[in-house]
Simulated assay, not measured.
Amino acid sequence: MTELLIERHGPVAVLVLNRPQAMNALSQSLIRSLTAAVAALGRDETARVLVLTGAGEHAFSAGLDLKELGASSGLLGMVEGGGERPNPIRAIEQCPKPVIAAVNGVAITGGFELALACDILIAAETARFADTHQRVGVIPGWGLSQKLARIIGPSRAKEMAFSGRFVTAPEASAWGLVSRTVPPGDLMAEVLALAGEIAEVDAGFLADYKRLMNEGYDLPFGEAMALEAEWSRRHNSALAPNDLAARREGVQSKGRSR
Rank of each mutant, 00 (worst) to 15 (best):
E57G: 12
E200F: 00
T126H: 06
P11Y: 00
L66D: 05
L5Q: 09
N104M: 10
Q21F: 09
R135S: 14
G204V: 10
D65V: 00
P241Y: 03
A37P: 00
R156C: 03
A240K: 12
C95A: 13
P86E: 08
R258H: 12
P96S: 00
A172C: 12
G74W: 04
A123E: 11
L192S: 08
F221C: 11
E230D: 11
K147H: 07
A193H: 03
S72D: 10
N242L: 14
E57I: 00
L114E: 13
L144C: 09
V251A: 07
F205S: 15
A149F: 00
A123K: 11
R19E: 09
T168V: 09
L17V: 01
D243E: 14
T132M: 15
A240M: 08
G141N: 00
N87I: 00
A172Q: 10
Q21R: 15
R32S: 06
S253W: 05
I151Y: 03
F60E: 04
G222T: 10
A238Y: 08
G164P: 08
M188Y: 06
E80H: 05
H58A: 12
V79L: 08
K67V: 14
R233Y: 02
P98F: 03
R247T: 01
A36S: 10
C118E: 05
L17D: 05
P98I: 04
A161I: 10
V167P: 02
L239D: 06
G42V: 09
T126K: 11
S73W: 00
T53P: 10
F221Q: 15
V138N: 04
N18M: 06
K67D: 14
R180H: 14
G216P: 01
D65R: 00
L69P: 04
N214G: 10
S73H: 04
N242I: 07
A107I: 09
A102Q: 01
H9Y: 07
E197W: 07
S72R: 10
A123P: 13
N236D: 11
E68Y: 03
S155M: 12
A62G: 08
S27Q: 02
P184V: 04
L5G: 08
L121A: 01
R180P: 08
A157S: 15
P20Q: 11
L41F: 10
R256N: 12
V49F: 07
A161E: 14
Y209Q: 13
R135G: 03
R150V: 03
V167W: 15
L219I: 03
L227C: 04
G56E: 04
A157L: 11
R128A: 13
L121Y: 02
G137A: 06
L50V: 14
A245Y: 02
R233F: 01
G153E: 09
D202G: 06
V51T: 12
G81K: 13
E230C: 05
S173Q: 15
G255R: 14
F166A: 15
R90L: 13
A226H: 09
G196Y: 01
L192M: 08
L26R: 07
N24Y: 02
G81P: 05
A174D: 13
Q252Y: 01
A226L: 12
F112S: 11
A55F: 07
R85I: 02
V38I: 14
P184Y: 01
L187V: 07
A224V: 13
A207L: 08
R247A: 05
C95G: 13
G70F: 00
T35C: 00
R48Y: 03
